[in-house]
Write a protein that binds this DNA or RNA. Structure first.
Lengths: 115, 115
DNA sequence: AAGGTTACTTACTAAAAAGTATGTATCGCA
DNA sequence: TGCGATACATACTTTTTAGTAAGTAACCTT
């Protein structure tokens, strides 16, 4: 598989592309929470341990730009914004689920091997 | 899912754990090439575009430490070292295959959408 | 004695990702 | 008039990851 370009960026292989879409510390946790519900910014913020405003905002923006989530802003005060998965987001959730299950199995094995 | 510890390191969720095992620019390409063959250092080096000695060596070491590949050193001059997948490595190759296929689909869609 | 082959190692630099802290806008309400 | 609520934005620092360049060890062959 030769190098290729996606959205103007060079990638060396398909795995690298996927990793850039859902990799990093925060994207999977965000998508996971939107799996079957719409959530407000503040709800995500409270529900994802350790995340900061900066990280939550930037990752939400990237996920939106990449087409995985949609953002609905209500013109009210104080502000209200709702995030939810797009069709594309629902598709990639399946992959995340697979990866997640693999991770869970790893943890299990580790648990069982330390008596 | 609360934080947990794996090999002495804290993780926030199972996906993050998997990402650390096979993420980064080079681990998937290396594992992929060992999918169904043993390869020498120099063969990997030539077969993986853009990779440097430093990156190849460090990633091979980490994959070995994490139990995905085994390293067989022959006591000859010039040196000869062979790398191959362990059982654990063969397991995670399946996951990598799934991720890779997802990436290939993404590329296809992009291809077809630009006339 | 010098050169070739192979699998590394080491030092240094650059770029990317993440973390910390603080600030801002808006409007209703006390 | 100042405070609270919410969803951000911005500046700066730290950490992590990757890239570049050069060097080393060992033995065989010429």
């Amino acid at each position: 598989m030769p190098d290729f370009i996606y959205n103007g960026k060079i990638y060396y292989n398909p795995v690298q592309l996927v990793m850039e879409q859902i990799g990093g510390t925060w994207k999977a946790p965000i998508l996971w929470r939107l799996k079957d519900q719409t959530m407000r910014y503040g709800e995500l913020r409270k529900d994802i341990p350790h995340i900061s405003d900066k990280m939550l905002t930037t990752q939400l923006r990237e996920l939106e730009d990449d087409g995985y989530i949609s953002r609905k802003v209500y013109a009210v005060v104080p502000p209200k914004t709702e995030y939810s998965l797009t069709t594309q987001g629902k598709e990639i959730i399946e992959l995340i689920t697979t990866i997640r299950n693999y991770g869970l199995k790893m943890i299990e094995k580790q648990e069982s091997s330390k008596k």
